[in-house]
């Protein structure tokens, strides 16, 4: 469906995009960002779903099932941990707005 050379172009452009997007990240965000990018590669879920959806015998079903199970763990775990970490970042102004004092 995706031609060899078209895919090569996508690979190249996506790689530069990834590099650019991250290049100016402050150190304080490294851990949440690692967790966030961990969530993004959870898109593997989509491929695992298609693989299981096309499984025709028991062996393929077992492997496909494991794939979807792991991928779903990647997606949900990645989201929950990133969201929890990012929810904690507040500035002094946010603090004052939040507290009654």
């Amino acid at each position: 469906m995706i031609d060899g050379f078209i895919a090569l172009y996508i690979f190249m452009l996506a790689a530069f995009t990834g590099y650019e997007v991250i290049s100016r990240v402050p150190v304080i965000l490294h851990t949440p960002l690692m967790s966030g990018s961990n969530f993004v590669h959870g898109i593997v879920l989509v491929g695992a779903m298609v693989a299981l959806g096309n499984a025709n015998n028991l062996a393929e079903q077992i492997i496909g099932f494991i794939g979807v199970l792991l991928a779903a763990g990647n997606v949900v775990g990645g989201y929950v941990s990133t969201e929890r970490m990012l929810a904690m970042f507040k500035t002094s102004q946010d603090k004052n707005k939040g507290s009654r004092a």
């Binding site: 996506a14 790689a15 530069f16 590099y19 990018s37 993004v40 593997v44």
Partner: peptide
């Protein structure tokens, strides 16, 4: 999958 995977691959390498 190609785009998201590659973006993470590059970003992760830089990180």
């Amino acid at each position: 999958m190609i785009i998201a995977g590659m973006v993470v691959g590059a970003a992760g390498t830089l990180l």
